[in-house]
């Protein structure tokens, strides 16, 4: 558990995740942050409780005539051995929280990095197309190219720290940026910075060259 997290998820993000309405890429950032942050885990549970209250209040809808029997049949159709869920294995020394490991297919050493120039590397993770998410590796002291946003961008720090015009972000911190923010994140000295960044719009770099390169970078 990380007690030093200062930058948390917003209520609308937690509520949309609780309701099941976030694009998969954003959902991955939320699930990863919640895995690291008890504060947001508790807030998420309270938004899920609202979902429970909504369900309880919903008008009912008549079930098919044989519905109960059909459900009992569904139950008995599942072989006994498949009913027991495997115990959750927590890899204590893993850098990446479990939801992220499931998308990477392993811990940080399994990530297939690709250079994006300026010694910055990235790995785009497979999600549905309504938003995209990638791991970013920024060597200590190196800046990510200046870019603004057309949509929402979530950046979660997994290791090291980055600073931008807004603040300093350390492990577990998440920055929620919108279109107004034109920022230059710089990895803090000392430690290389690894973050998970999701966006619902292609990033727009300020310089001409990066803009031309954008379709090839897939960001």
């Amino acid at each position: 558990m990380n007690m030093t997290i200062k930058h948390h998820l917003t209520d609308p993000l937690l509520m949309a995740y609780a309701a099941g309405n976030l694009p998969e890429a954003f959902g991955l950032v939320v699930a990863t942050h919640v895995s690291m942050c008890d504060e947001c885990r508790a807030r998420l549970a309270s938004f899920e409780a609202v979902g429970g209250a909504v369900l309880e209040e919903t008008d009912t809808c008549e079930m098919a005539e044989d519905s109960f029997a059909a459900t009992m049949k569904r139950i008995s159709d599942v072989p006994e051995e498949e009913r027991i869920t495997a115990p959750a294995t927590t890899a204590e020394d893993a850098l990446l929280p479990k939801p992220l490991r499931e998308y990477v297919g392993g811990d940080i050493d399994a990530v297939e990095w690709k250079s994006v120039g300026g010694r910055v590397r990235q790995a785009i993770l497979p999600t549905s197309k309504d938003a995209s998410v990638r791991l970013l590796y920024i060597p200590a002291g190196v800046a990510v190219p200046d870019h603004g946003h057309r949509g929402t961008e979530l950046t979660l720090v997994l290791q090291g720290a980055f600073e931008d015009e807004a603040d300093v972000f350390g492990p577990g911190d998440v920055e929620v940026a919108n279109e107004e923010l034109e920022h230059t994140p710089v990895a803090a000295p000392g430690h290389d910075c690894i973050c998970l960044a999701a966006t619902d719009a292609p990033l727009r770099f300020s310089g001409l060259i990066p803009r031309l390169a954008q379709p090839f970078l897939g960001i």
């Binding site: 099941g20 990863t32 899920e48 979902g51 429970g52």
Partner: peptide, 26 residues
Amino acid sequence: ATWVFTIARNRRIDALRKNRRPEPED
């Protein structure tokens, strides 16, 4: 009710949006 809601929500994401849902470490 909350627990049933989360199961129904996940089933909806699976059936209607055909997406995976990333879940926090339990």
